[in-house]
Design a protein around this nucleic acid. Structure first.
Lengths: 124, 124
DNA sequence: TTGATAATGAAAATCGTTTTCAATAAGGAA
DNA sequence: TTCCTTATTGAAAACGATTTTCATTATCAA
């Protein structure tokens, strides 16, 4: 958790492993996977899938830090930008849509994600 | 493409392979992957990642069929519901947000995806 | 018909992730 | 403390989706 806390990035299991291993070389990759899975199940960590074959992890509500946000994904270099602006509009739209969908499809909706895809300045 | 056209589902490469193989047993899995990748690059097929480890494919603008839609994903059984209702609200919200994000982050945004997560009736 | 190039499938390689398993650590009861 | 049961750990193996390699087969223009 210190490691997750110390970085803004969306880290992969391997990223965490490298950092953890640097601190304590006796830590194995398996433990990193197990711990990330547990933290995810506990709701402390959120697991993302950006489609590049490896999962990314991020602390939920990194205290004093990250809050609700979404992603802007560059299809060129696969870089990811977090954004958390314009959430008022989102709140309104999502709230409305979610309640309509819940009703119509009899789903108990607990979460959502919005991603925008495109090309960043460097990849254009 | 006939195979993709004949199903509403989000099929995996293996799904396509099984169906293709049934029609012509000389078709290999490699070719299925290669073809799906090509169609995706051509913009004819869209590749999705629902976080269950395998990619799903779907025809873009399945003529007379699928149009712009998003997904409702059950965290229990991993089933996926397409929805294409309430797009007027979405259009407004997405359009506004997209143009703001484009400007702020200097991104050339070409696409977006919205996913809702929760539990379907059977998994509750 | 020929020859160069493209497309194909089988098998091997890759890579992220999960499982197995033997070794070690923890923790409670005696 | 000592003993015993259970939990945690990491290395190595297994796994599964996808990609790469490579030799074979099609394609097609000259």
């Amino acid at each position: 958790m210190d490691i997750l806390h110390a970085t803004d990035d969306h880290v992969s299991a391997a990223d965490v492993y490298v950092k953890a291993h640097r601190i304590n070389p006796s830590i194995g990759l398996t433990t990193v996977y197990r711990t990330l899975e547990m933290l995810t199940r506990m709701g402390i960590v959120q697991k993302f899938d950006f489609g590049d074959g490896k999962a990314r992890f991020e602390l939920v509500n990194n205290p004093g830090g990250k809050k609700h946000h979404h992603h802007l994904i560059c299809l060129g270099c696969k870089s990811i930008v977090d954004y958390s602006e314009f959430l008022e509009d989102e709140l309104e739209f999502i709230g409305k849509t979610q309640s309509r969908l819940s009703k119509k499809y009899d789903f108990d909706i607990t979460d959502h994600s919005i991603s925008f895809y495109g090309l960043c300045a460097r990849c254009r």
